[in-house]
Amino acid sequence: MTRVERRNTRNALLFASPFVLGFFVIYAYPLVMTFVYSLQRYNVIRPPVWIGADNYHRLLFEDPRFWKSLYNTLYFTAFSVPLGLALALGLAMLLSLKVRGQAIYRTIFFLPTIVPIVASSVLWLWVLNAQNGLLNTTIEAIFGVQGPGWLADEHWSKPALILMSFWSVGGPMVIFLAGLADVPQSLYEVADIDGAGPFRKFRNVTLPMITPVILFNLVIGLINSFQYFTQVYVMTNGKGEPVDSTMFYALYLYRNSFYYLDMGYGSAMALIMFLVILAATVGVMISSKRWVHYHGD
């Protein structure tokens, strides 16, 4: 190493030192410890006891609630992520037509995403209120029928949360909007010459060109959806009711760890969550080779 290289490396390490520390203390060490705790019985108060794979055995074979929470989370993800992305893309496409007042519409669609989640959850608890909520009073005034019980009904509670999740599609929408703006205008002109209508232009030009953005939004959407917590904690007072129909994975993890103080069990759940998210992300990335088109910039 030359003198300059040595000086550079020393400086670089100095500048990066906050995150060098942060990387080990906030990410690497906890990740390892989550694995260690998952092999122990540990309630913070008494010293941990090694129990091997017992926590995993309990989770996978003796705890129907674990499977229920996984099912609920997958159910929610399977609907809220793809439908949410479709809605976000639809709104972005309408906005990209450059109609008058575009900036105002964009602001309106984006606004819900900056509302503190606790506030929006309390608000939606009221919107979805079975007797007096905005949704059911509107349904009754227009159609003259009583709307479903939403959060009070085990069959409607997840659809209610999925519906609520559509209110915050503004984040992916803004990213889609930027992606749409990057599609070269010349491609549309060529399509015009070929006599393509709006539907074929969407199918053969827009959609292939924005697949990288779809991939990005999809991965972020999946990761966030698996960690879905605050909304359901606030709206069910941390209970995941009715009949465990809103006992989501992250909520059950929280309850085991900080309510029952079963940190070992919670750690095993955390590790499984990590593996599920990793598998989903890797799966999407591998499949993306077949459907994502990168156009050289």
Binding site: F23, Y27, P30, M33, Y37, Q227, M273
Partner: peptide, 27 residues
């Protein structure tokens, strides 16, 4: 500095870690 880009990938990788995975040991 040598290894800069490799280390940066590590920074990006930590971004993908779900917070709940670190939460219990941090607590």
């Amino acid at each position: 500095w040598p290894g800069r880009d490799l280390c940066f990938i590590l920074v990006l990788a930590t971004m993908m870690l779900p917070y709940q995975v670190m939460l219990i040991p941090l607590f």
